[in-house]
Design a protein around this nucleic acid. Structure first.
Lengths: 194, 194
DNA sequence: CCTACCGATCGGTAGG
DNA sequence: CCTACCGATCGGTAGG
């Protein structure tokens, strides 16, 4: 009845790994490093995961899936106004990054160390997400809501800004996810000029 | 008279290293990898550089120095209008990134592997550059030219967008550095909304 | 620029 | 979950 949720060893492992991979990179982190933080010996890790790549895979796809979920929900809701769609994406994306800042950093920086077959899959998901944003911007252009000469650059600038939040986001700071979203919307919609 | 510029071995080494560090990361690249591309044996590298860290140091500071040069030139020129200052920064920054896309990627992603003393120095330079941009935006705010609730977020969004260019920039593509700069200025000054 | 080689560390397995 | 250990690879040195 008074059960405290105890994350099982596999989840614990993933959390330690994502903190370490963020800090020292995938190639710069060793299984022995992870084991030491867990307070166990390195070979014991292999009772819970198959390989170091397996750990990376879990982390990268956990985040990728959350991003895909965002666009799937938007598609399901059937909303069609590009500005609202883009607002929703920004809002939800910032929430994912702020709630998973370690894993998001790994998603952004360490995905290239995935094994070939996982890498293919990962890139497909990432491209799908990217193309949805690009499509949204194109829709906005066609409807005369947006204005730009370079949809791709806007898409990628927005995405790198959103993904870069983990660099400076402080989970204990005064700035909440929603504040960050609104600031980013203001910047990308209205620009810096008064 | 007909001398072709032959990069000396040290420069050649730096170029191979920055391509490799970009592709596989600092920790994921070995001295033997570098040697193989150079067509020599790994120990021979040490006739030209002191260590693997030494290579990283050269690459990171080569770019850092170029960024610092941008703001030093602006300071020397005495120009004071924040919008023009920011335009100049964007223009010059994009030029550095597009002309040095491998080294820029290393600058952005691999600096954390610098040795302690170099790391301190590097962070100081990076902060100096960052603060100059932030100061420029603050000046613009005070003069009523700019408008934002979050100077830091604007600064970092702009910087991650600028630094992220190496992700998609194609040196053989139709998009020139100047085009990219203008598109980024448009986006960050005027925003996406019509 | 090379060969020969160092100690350290890597991801991972065997076997319990 | 451990101990014991594997072959491979790491950055780097000695000596020429």
């Amino acid at each position: 009845m008074d059960l405290i949720e105890i994350p099982d060893r596999k989840d614990q492992l993933r959390e330690v790994a994502q903190t370490l991979f963020k800090e020292k990179g995938y190639a710069g982190s060793s299984m022995r490093d992870i084991a030491q933080i867990m307070g166990i010996e390195a070979p014991s890790i292999y009772n819970h995961v198959n390989s170091k790549h397996d750990l990376l895979k879990r982390i990268c796809f956990e985040i990728a899936d959350k991003f895909i979920l965002i666009i799937n929900n938007i598609k399901k809701s059937g909303s069609s106004h590009p500005a609202i769609t883009l607002q929703t994406i920004i809002l939800e994306h910032v929430e994912v990054v702020t709630e998973n800042h370690d894993a998001s950093a790994v998603f952004t920086n360490e995905w290239r160390f995935l094994e070939a077959s996982d890498l293919d899959n990962f890139i497909k998901l990432r491209n799908k997400y990217e193309r949805f944003i690009e499509k949204t911007i194109k829709d906005g252009l066609e409807q005369g809501i947006f204005k730009t000469n370079n949809t791709k650059l806007v898409t990628l600038s927005l995405l790198t800004s959103l993904n870069g939040i983990y660099h400076w986001y402080n989970p204990n700071g005064r700035l909440k996810a929603e504040d960050i979203s609104h600031n980013i919307m203001n910047l990308f919609f209205l620009g810096l000029k008064r």
